[in-house]
């Protein structure tokens, strides 16, 4: 079958995965916007959230068969909520342990990166020890049927659920940043932290909230990811690098850029994986990252939330 026969199917798959990248990328972009710092341990927040949601949904899953109807909705909702909470808790702890002591001393930037790497190494391997080092599958929470066909491509319940939840979170976050007092605070700190302090913004609080919001999104995204693929202790790394690529692609620090970057990267990867070889999908994302850094380092939409350095 040629590429064009598969085009719509690839597009749908790409958008589904891309919306997940977008959700994770928001965590990078928010923290970058506020702290001008790559949060290397964000992928572990995603991983921990994923495990949290997976275990919660599995614990509530009745024996035998795939639940249906209202029960499916309930299970997905619980999984999302617990995943988001675990993600938020992980992000909060991370900020507390690996970042705040350094901020107190105003350590050089290198120290933050290294500290985040250490925290990431710790979290990954502790999860590996506690939850085993195999892939953990989440049983089906609903009948994954084809809901409708679009230009001959099947759209499954799963794609719809993931896409709908992801888009809802993206829109919600966009409203949060653009329209609320908290969002105003985040934007103020991102633009100029010193001035924001003078205007009465509690920078410390904004930083914590930013980490927590990023963690909520990553945790819920982690649950969606576990629903599609599976969970494992080392699952965070690849989506983490890709989400970072998505954030840079859209313009790091830029909330809408991260969303656009995520969806675009999902599409590029889906098409590229078909045209070349599926096992080199990860290479494509990396090439996109290097290319964007060479051609347009400020990203497609520019670095708007934060300062362009």
């Amino acid at each position: 079958m040629g590429f064009f026969d598969q085009f719509w199917q690839l597009t749908i798959d790409g958008l589904m995965v891309g919306s997940l990248y977008a959700v994770i990328a928001l965590g990078y972009t928010l923290v970058y916007g506020v702290l001008q710092l790559i949060n290397f341990a964000h992928s572990e927040v995603f991983m921990l959230g994923s495990f949290g949601g997976l275990f919660a949904a599995r614990a509530l899953l009745p024996d035998g068969g795939v639940p249906g109807g209202f029960q499916s909705v309930y299970l997905v909702a619980v999984g999302l909520a617990v995943g988001a909470l675990c993600g938020a808790l992980a992000a909060f702890t991370l900020e507390r342990v690996a970042y705040r002591p350094l901020r107190r001393r105003s350590a050089p930037r290198l120290a933050y990166l290294i500290s985040a790497i250490g925290a990431s190494l710790f979290a990954v391997n502790l999860a590996g020890k506690e939850f085993g080092r195999q892939n953990v599958d989440l049983p089906d929470l609903f009948h994954n049927d084809t809901v409708f066909t679009l230009f001959g491509a099947d759209v499954s319940t799963q794609s719809l659920v993931i896409f709908a939840v992801a888009i809802a979170m993206l829109v919600g976050l966009d409203r949060l940043v653009a329209g609320t007092r908290l969002g105003q605070g985040i934007r103020a700190v991102a633009q100029d932290a010193d001035t924001a302090v003078l205007m009465g913004v509690n920078v410390e609080r904004i930083i914590i909230v930013t980490f927590v919001v990023g963690g909520l999104l990553a945790g819920a995204g982690g649950f969606l990811y576990a629903m599609t693929f599976n969970a494992s202790y080392s699952m965070g790394f690849v989506p983490g690098v890709k989400a970072f690529t998505a954030a840079v692609l859209g313009g790091i620090g830029n909330v809408r850029g991260a969303m656009l970057g995520g969806l675009l990267l999902g599409l590029v990867e889906s098409y590229g994986g078909y045209l070349f070889q599926a096992s080199y999908k990860d290479v494509i994302a990396f090439l996109v990252l290097v290319a964007i850094l060479m051609i347009r380092p400020s990203g497609l939409l520019g670095e708007r939330l934060g300062r362009a350095a």
Partner: peptide, 14 residues
């Protein structure tokens, strides 16, 4: 500074 990565992140307290 102590590295070649630019200014210290926000929230630093000298």
């Amino acid at each position: 500074a102590a590295d070649a990565l630019g200014a210290a992140p926000t929230g630093a307290r000298p």
